[in-house]
Design a protein around this nucleic acid. Structure first.
Lengths: 199, 199
DNA sequence: CCTTCAGGTTAACGACCGCTAACCTCCCTG
DNA sequence: CAGGGAGGTTAGCGGTCGTTAACCTGAAGG
């Protein structure tokens, strides 16, 4: 039991602030002193919780990829088999949008700082990402049986680009409301997928 | 007359290699010695061509934003007024796809390293980017008069995310051919825009 | 033939950064 | 009430990085 009520452990505080700082200024652009200052301790105190700066990034990226994948697997398993593949695709889109709207710094890190990882961690993250993509590709090919797999894969990557554009959509305050934005993104993703088949 | 035939000046060589390296490992992740080595000279020799490392990034980002904007303005001006706004939108999409496919490192830098710029340069780039976005928003609102401006702006940013996903689409060799990829992206962008109106 | 200058070179400086060492201070527990 | 570990602190080391200084060279031009 890591998290109890609403109180974040020091370790979770560090991860959250590190994610924000890494997203804002890049992994190499943030010093450990800044990360420490963001949680109220100073510099080397971080080494009581993490073996090094790299380990924070690794835990963030592995965590993101893992949560995306397990969430998608759960949605796939919980889907009503009689409802048809379109409903499953909608569920995947909804889950990804929730993540993109709630964890914007992590979305930014996700495809930006992967190359700063140690080889073993990078391979793990890439494997999780690939499984996630292939899961989408499988569902997409069920919804649109006429679409070839390579086209489906490209389409999935492109729609991820669309959904992950949330960091560019302005501050959460200036958005027209979370539900409205989510709906807009959902319709656009569906529209983009629907246009793949029309060749 | 900067470029003559096909020979790149030393200055252009440096910019090209710097763009590639910055895109691969991030601005802070690349040293001046590496940039120099990539063009066959060593380290501080770069300072005969640029006042500093920052200046290379600044010239790259200002160049990208400027070329995108002027290209879009040209397409808007050259469009046949009788052809209708849909054709203009297609022309904008086509231009952006050409850029995304031909200058993938610059696409990566475009929205990743903006914050590493000096204040004045960053303001200039942001202004160029904003003009580019507003130009798209204007055309989009002509094609879909029922779409409100804020929704149109969000939609444009999201479609940029979709079109700029080309760096994630695998190496140019593994793609099914430039024309096919361009067509796929174009249809998806159109499909995404078309789905905005259906609320 | 001498000068000039564009475009290189290497050496080195100063700042910064990740990390370690050494030490301190509560709080929990037998 | 000892004592030990969790979680801090500051000082400082070693390496890297951007930048400058000083010097070299080959080609153009009067």
């Amino acid at each position: 039991m890591t998290t109890r009520t609403d109180a974040l452990t020091r370790r979770e505080q560090i991860l959250k602030e590190a994610a924000r700082l890494f997203a804002e200024r890049g992994f190499h652009g943030v010093g450990v002193d800044e990360i420490g200052a963001a949680v109220g301790i100073s510099g080397p105190g971080l080494y009581r919780h993490f073996p090094g700066k790299d380990a924070m990034l690794a835990e963030l990226l592995v965590g993101i990829s893992g949560r995306l994948l397990t969430g998608a697997k759960r949605r796939l398993a919980e889907a009503d088999p009689a409802a048809g593949p379109g409903v499953v695709l909608d569920s995947l889109i909804e889950g990804h949008i929730d993540f993109a709207l709630d964890d914007r710094p992590l979305i930014t890190l996700h495809d930006r700082e992967l190359d700063r990882l140690r080889d073993s961690d990078r391979k793990l993250v890439r494997q999780l990402q690939r499984q996630y993509v292939e899961l989408w590709v499988g569902v997409l090919c069920e919804v649109y049986p006429d679409v070839a797999e390579p086209s489906a894969r490209s389409a999935v990557h492109s729609v991820f680009g669309l959904l992950n554009s949330t960091p560019h959509l302005g501050r959460p305050g200036s958005l027209p409301g979370r539900g409205v934005t989510a709906g807009l993104l959902h319709r656009m993703a569906r529209g983009a997928f629907g246009a793949v088949a029309a060749e």
